[in-house]
Design a protein around this nucleic acid. Sequence first.
DNA 1: AACAGACATTGATTTAAGTCAATGAAAAGG
DNA 2: CCTTTTCATTGACTTAAATCAATGTCTGTT
Lengths: 242, 242
Amino acid sequence: MSGPNTPIRNDCDECALASRCFPAFISVEKRFRVTQIITTNLTYDKTALLYRQGEKTKHIYIIKSGSFKTYISNPNGTEYINGFYMTGDIINMESVDQGIHLNSASALENSMVCKVSFLRLTILKDEFPTLANMAIKVYSQALALSQDLLKCISKQSATSRLATFLLIINRRQNIQNQDPDKIYLSMSRQDIANYLGLAIETLSRVFTRLNESGCIIKHNRHSDLSIHDRDLLQRYASGIEN
Amino acid sequence: MSGPNTPIRNDCDECALASRCFPAFISVEKRFRVTQIITTNLTYDKTALLYRQGEKTKHIYIIKSGSFKTYISNPNGTEYINGFYMTGDIINMESVDQGIHLNSASALENSMVCKVSFLRLTILKDEFPTLANMAIKVYSQALALSQDLLKCISKQSATSRLATFLLIINRRQNIQNQDPDKIYLSMSRQDIANYLGLAIETLSRVFTRLNESGCIIKHNRHSDLSIHDRDLLQRYASGIEN
DNA sequence: AACAGACATTGATTTAAGTCAATGAAAAGG
DNA sequence: CCTTTTCATTGACTTAAATCAATGTCTGTT
């Protein structure tokens, strides 16, 4: 076995996300410490639950591949979609304070995540102060995004909401995508409608209209589409065009 | 002058917020260090700008008294209200990552704030690791609140939105209030309407309806009201009642 | 391959909220 | 103190999206 000061090769060194994930904030020589607090490459099948609303929580999750939705189940059986998460995103940041899951998370497709105990992260943080900076950076970003989204969803038309949504998804997928105009929607129409605060029928009509205007191209009924006229899509998103 | 290890009495020791503000995370003996990074008791008159969208930023602000709104100005002259902040709240957390103000902030009434350089806070953080924990705690709370609000505003009726808004304001004001049912609205109807994603006329009608149903009592036209039937208000908020 | 069930789309109608317009009430300013 | 301006309320009408209902299309199962 390697001694505690001998660098060892671990999962994180070989991960495609390493440069954007928290090991990036720890020197290569000390990366071995990471293995002590992170559980890597957990797999979840489509529809599998990552965690359940109300449960106690001690972990954040980093998505290595695939995607998840978080949602709140209502007494009347309906769901409120809180967010969609994809490669590189961190799930459960909002529960770190209370230590209880505020929503449930389920896989939208077969996915892989790494699991980090935030209690242990706190200990490691004292050892590597840059980790705290990273945490604050990530939180600040999440908050900025969330405010943006609030603005968009509370005040825009159905067309503008969907256009904004597609542009955001596209931007997030582009980080690792080949074709910059391709969009893959791993979530159902119902999920998107719910997330954007629209009826599923309204959403469907808007999809049809965006398609007919030549703005997007649908490659099949559900998940695969391409942005064909990005400029127009952006005008829809900003509300210049209707 | 006191030497660096001699506890000195400073503004923060006497502040009513001390137990909820970040000095709470530093031992009394070392509190003097706080004075090196915090500027206390800055005053802003009603309508005065705390900062302007697009400016570079190095500070977060803690409200000692009064209230502020943050907003984005649009090319067409309209405003998007991002948030309302009151005593004990921290303004500008979302800009820490980018270092640029994502919105403008202005005082809704005569107010007092303390200003903390987050660069210096980073240095202090290495000295007092608990500060980092506090930062993460605060961020996690802010994120949870923001997700809650998104849900409420994107999917609820006008009545439910206003009822939720009033309950949130009431809860936040209760921390230091005498009468637990009193609500003071320092922002204009236009600001509330904008924040909730409603037309000002719709908001006005809902105010009238809540008043007529005996749910709230308006003490004057604008700012002062009381919750008269909290249970009913909560039913409106949850959408059980319309 | 055929069936069932889930999911998506399209059409007809209703409704909640937005818009336009007028009035009322308070605050600001000379 | 009176005028002007700003902000809030109320009414009449319009519209975007929700709802209700039917149809179409994919997915998975045996």
